[in-house]
Amino acid sequence: MGKVIGAIAMSHIMFPPDGIEEQAERVLQGMLEIRRRVRALNPDLIILAGADHLNNFTLAMQVTLAIGIADSFETLGDGGVPVSRFPGDRAFAEAFARFAAHHDYELVQVEEMRPDHGTAFPKLVLDPGNAIPTVPLYINAAMPVPPSPRRCYRLGEVLHRFVEEERPEGERVLVVGTGGLSHWLRMPGEGQIADAFDKEVIDAIITGQAEKLAELSSEEIVAASGNGGLEMIAWLFAAGALPGARGEEIYYEAVPAWITGMGAIEIRADR
């Protein structure tokens, strides 16, 4: 059997430091701390879950849950992330799609796409040399009808079972959920940061209570933390991959200049 060796949840963008140099540096140091922890965990494979921003999946065909099955992916280059190519893992991705279908989840299998900043920025943070095969999993919070928080958490549980039941002995899998935290993007409320709610999200997950958090509806999360805040459903997926495990905050910063709450946590397999 394989093992989910840890999970990370993290914001997936940064903006220029102009005027907030010290705070931006703290955010950057948080990102570099994530990188150090990934190196210490030494994963064989990363499952990187997050949202596309209507760059690959549009309103023409409103895909909510999808998995990248290609051998490699060239990133889109948006958000200031340099274009690069990283290896996927076709065997893992196709086998997980089949396993998930036996456990109530039909994941759209994607051969052709160019991951946008929601995947490419965290990939740069986690693995700057593109050395670790990484399977992109899409939890498209920006779709008009997004997947429910509960199903995102439970999909993480399905991934946990898949790794334990079907993957080779000794395989080390890191699960990462990206996006958030609170931000209101081009909707009434733009400019707010719900730092109290963001801290509730962080505290719930690092104390092993993500399943309870996942009882909130999408609408309740949007009301509490904005349409961008709903990206935390990918954090719930990451938490579901280590059900009940505890973790710790890596950093949190409410950044008014970027109109967003920025944060990251590590969930530890040994807690």
Partner: peptide, 14 residues
């Protein structure tokens, strides 16, 4: 979507 962008200040370290 590509071009000089919001990460330039951090790219050397990233």
């Amino acid at each position: 979507l590509v071009g000089a962008g919001p990460l330039d200040a951090y790219l050397d370290r990233l």
